[in-house]
Design a binder for these strands. Sequence first.
DNA 1: CCGCATGATTGTTA
DNA 2: TAACAATCATGCGG
Length: 369
Amino acid sequence: MDDQQRLMHPSQGQVSMAGVMPQQGYDGSLTQGDPGDQRKQEIGDVLQQIMTITDQSLDEAQARKHTLNCHRMKPALFNVLCEIKEKTVLSIRNTQEEEPPDPQLMRLDNMLIAEGVAGPEKGGGSSAAASATAAASGGQPDSAIEHSDYRAKLAQIRQIYHTELEKYEQACNEFTTHVVNLLREQSRTRPIQPKEIERMVGIIRKKFSAIEMQLKQSTCEAVMILRSRFLDARRKRRNFTKSATEILTEYFYSHLSNPYPSEEVKEELARKCGISVSQVSNWFGNKRIRYKKNIGKAQEEANLYAAKAASAASSQMVNNTPSSPTGSSNYSLPSSQSQLGGQGAMYMNINGGESYPGGENSWGLEDSE
DNA sequence: CCGCATGATTGTTA
DNA sequence: TAACAATCATGCGG
């Protein structure tokens, strides 16, 4: 409050000087003997009273203001103040310019809107979380819980953000109204142009928008942390179900010569396993690389699935191995599982103990199916 | 709690 | 652009 009052007083010092010194007498007389001195004294007193107004209690000030306003010299003095003001205000006017919107603020705004914190409500608070759960549960049952959890937290952030924003807004309005009223009140004693009030309002708004920006910034941070905690799948990695892993592994080993499922197959596998296509792609990517890295270890697993494939295929197999066109993809197993026909056998490809899966021609060029 | 398994991400490459 | 390779970060059994 005091700040604002003082802010609006910069001209007072000048006024007291400029108003008194030249002594633009109302009767034209300049520095004359007694009458001039007396007038000078009077003006000095009036100015002194104006200056001390803010230091006084309200009642006292009110009374003094009243006497000041009724003072016979008030109108004249007021005119002088206006004149001086006119000169000084010009310089103020030039200094204030419309600055472009802060890019930082725009970035924050955009992000908040993108995250659904600011801007139009996406479905409406808690019900949004519920509907999101319902929608997601069709596809990925596991992540649906995470998702709704995330939504709930986001809604929480959103609520806090809006509450705070509202608070600021209210405080800003209250403060602005207060200051405007104060200035209006003061404008009876000293010259205050509407433009100045506007400017003051602008200053207040700017201050409050700076606070708002801080709020936005911390909200953004909170959202980022939330995201990293909930949406970064790495943090919430879940192993696939046993059956899913089994399906994938089985496919992998039964297509070991070319473990690159097509998009359609990936979709099929994804559907069977209850995971996404990209997860299937990830899985095969990981599997291929890890198989290559450690064939020795993979052999155990390979044999297992080979046995499975064999038993599954045995019903259809009569005599010959169904697919052994060249030596390319079917390698015979060293010992115990030697007669595991079909594709199951080829993962035992032994090429000098080197860990490369297709020997001289690594994966991809030949397909067993 | 440690170490390995494993799903996901990131950067590079052909 | 998909695959690869390296790496991250969590899951989980001992």
